[in-house]
């Protein structure tokens, strides 16, 4: 399913944290949303979902909460769980918007298998490690079985093999015609798995395109204050982030 944002603007105390963002995401894409801390990535996704008040238009804001929950699933950045609920019951919470109870068992089992948390099924969610809880919460996201997925830093805190697994899973969803938009800080992962990167800086959309088009040295230095390059490897080109080049205008941290 596609997502269309027109002139989306979110103001906090008068200052725009998301500034006139227009974005078309066709069905079957895996979009990586990148940008430094405070660039407005989370706010953009919340506004797109209609979770916070915003000016401009998004496909999703016109829907009732229940109908939106069947079209789009959202993984917030905060990994909260208030009660010692067993893992399987937690994943099942993702099924609440779907009226079809017969699909529940299959959707829950499939989501737990995809995130490699089936063996944790009867463990209490409050007793899991941070990375395990993160995977369980992504499984909840998948159990919702929505055509559109928005995820805020889904791979933060995961070990490398599960980071790859989650990114590969999202890429597979895109191949199946679903749409995934995820904010990602690991530029190497984003460049490797996303078809398209959207770069935000200070609330604005500053670049949008294939990873090799977006991650140019000039933009990296200007937006992130780092440099980087695509390095050829036997497994194809791999993006690496590097310290800023000498003589750049980026402030250098003081010597300890």
């Amino acid at each position: 399913m596609s997502l269309s944002l027109q002139d989306l603007t979110v103001r906090r105390d008068g200052c725009p944290t998301v500034d006139h963002v227009t974005l078309e995401v066709p069905a079957g894409s895996f979009v990586g949303l990148i940008g430094p801390n405070g660039a407005g990535k989370t706010t953009l996704m919340q506004a797109a979902l209609g979770l916070i008040p915003a000016e401009g238009q998004s496909d999703l804001t016109a829907l009732s909460p229940a109908r939106r929950a069947r079209r789009a699933a959202w993984l917030p950045q905060a990994r909260e769980i208030a009660w010692p609920i067993p893992v399987e019951a937690l994943v099942r919470l993702g099924r609440r918007a779907d009226p079809d109870r017969r699909a529940d068992a299959a959707a829950v089992a499939e989501a737990m298998a995809a995130l490699d948390v089936t063996h944790l099924a009867s463990r209490r969610a409050t007793e899991l490690s941070g990375g395990e809880l993160a995977r369980v919460l992504i499984a909840r996201l998948l159990a919702q079985r929505t055509p559109l997925i928005l995820a805020d830093e889904p791979v933060a805190g995961l070990d490398p093999s599960h980071q790859f697994a989650v990114m590969e899973l999202f890429a597979r969803f895109a191949r199946q015609g679903r749409t995934v938009i995820a904010s990602i800080h690991d530029l190497a992962l984003a460049a490797r798995f996303c078809h398209r990167l959207v770069l935000m800086d200070r609330g604005r959309l500053v670049a949008d395109g294939r990873p090799s088009e977006v991650l140019t040295p000039a933009r990296l230095e200007q937006v992130f204050g780092v440099s980087g390059a695509f390095v050829p490897t036997p497994a194809g080109p791999v993006f690496v982030t590097l310290p800023p080049p000498p003589g750049s205008s980026v402030p250098v941290p003081p010597e300890p």
Partner: peptide, 11 residues
């Protein structure tokens, strides 16, 4: 139980 933001997104 998953927080206000997640709950709101789930309908």
């Amino acid at each position: 139980s998953l927080g206000e933001e997640a709950a709101a997104s789930m309908g």
